[in-house]
């Protein structure tokens, strides 16, 4: 994975995550990270998480994605993933 950083979740807890990539949706003026957490490094399948991020007082925080934006976020994730992978 690209990077491992410590962030703060909505409960205010510090969490170490492995960042795969980040993308931004200009129409929503929001940015998102794609990451894994507690990856065992072995399984063929990886649970990949997508969360909205915010820069609060110099600390990155994870935020919930509103339900009405989930479809858009997934569409962008698919596009970014496939583009980077050269499949689009």
């Amino acid at each position: 994975m690209i990077n491992s950083i410590e962030i703060i979740n909505e409960e205010g807890q510090k969490v170490n995550i492995n960042i795969i990539m980040q993308f931004r949706i200009e129409e929503l003026n929001k940015q998102y990270i794609v990451y894994t957490i507690n990856d065992d490094g072995i399984s063929e399948k990886i649970p990949v998480l997508i969360a909205e991020t915010d820069d609060e007082n110099g600390k990155y925080a994870l935020k919930k994605i509103p339900e009405n934006e989930v479809k858009t976020v997934l569409m962008f994730y698919d596009n970014v993933r496939d583009t980077i992978s050269g499949k689009r």
């Binding site: 998480l49 997508i50 919930k64 997934l74």
Partner: peptide, 18 residues
């Protein structure tokens, strides 16, 4: 509010590399 998708490790590793 966190979206979770299951991906193949090879695919994710390839994407990370690129």
């Amino acid at each position: 509010g966190i979206i979770a998708v299951e991906e193949e490790r090879d695919k994710i590793n390839e994407m990370s590399k690129k």
